[in-house]
């Protein structure tokens, strides 16, 4: 669910990735400022007038900060004192190295575990793969900047505590990169199980 934390930083306010390009930021602002304009039919009956106006102000402030390279750099320094988490920004592309497996990791960890090729990549399998690749959760957290808590939830299939799917998919791809797994397959399998859980919890609560 969209949470107030999602609005805690300006990227969240504009619903863009911290590595979004200037063009993506412009498009996001155009879409959201039109959508949440107090006169827009889409907010009628959903936001009070004053709330829609405040949201409009927040969107404008976020846009003005992020669309200006100078202001954005300043803001990023304040938001990420440890360095920007994104690999997508041109000025960081050279500096950052994408997560890679350890040299002693098996090329096909699924086969190394003696599992069938099409074994669904759930959290449990992921934990085994990580062990056979000789990687600790701390190392993954260090390389990818994914919080330890989230990594534990991913391996524990604790779906309720995971971040929004859009972030989760990005995390999974990074993890796949460190474990010699196909990013697409990991995302497909894991998000499949995630959706199944969503349905399951919906079904369990069907009658209120």
């Amino acid at each position: 669910m969209h949470h107030r934390d999602d609005d805690a930083n300006l990227y969240g306010v504009l619903e863009v990735d911290p590595g979004a390009t200037e063009d993506e930021i412009r498009r996001a602002y155009k879409r959201l400022s039109t959508l949440f304009d107090p006169n827009s039919m889409v907010v009628y009956g959903l936001y009070r007038l004053a709330e829609a106006q405040r949201l409009g102000e927040r969107l404008r402030l976020a846009y003005e900060t992020l669309v200006d390279p100078e202001k954005r750099r300043g803001y990023d320094r304040q938001l990420y004192p440890q360095g920007h988490p994104s690999l997508r920004r041109a000025d960081q592309r050279v500096a950052s190295v994408p997560p890679t497996p350890r040299p002693d990791a098996p090329a096909d960890p699924i086969a190394a575990l003696g599992l069938a090729e099409d074994t669904p990549l759930t959290g449990e399998v992921l934990a085994k793969v990580r062990q056979v690749c000789h990687v600790t959760l701390e190392e993954i957290a260090d390389r990818t900047k994914i919080p330890m808590f989230t990594l534990r939830c991913i391996e524990g299939d604790q779906f309720a505590d995971l971040p929004a799917p859009v972030y989760l998919k990005g995390f999974l791809k990074q993890i796949a990169g460190m474990l010699n797994l196909s990013p697409d397959q990991l995302v497909a399998d894991y998000m499949g199980a995630y959706s199944a859980w969503e349905i399951e919890s919906a079904r369990n609560k069907r009658w209120g």
């Binding site: 669910m1 969209h2 949440f36 889409v42 907010v43 959903l46 936001y47």
Partner: peptide, 16 residues
């Protein structure tokens, strides 16, 4: 409009 309403209820009510 449907896509807009999906965005809006996502933001306001947290509904997917």
């Amino acid at each position: 409009m449907g896509a807009g309403m999906v965005s809006a209820v996502g933001r306001r009510l947290g509904i997917n």
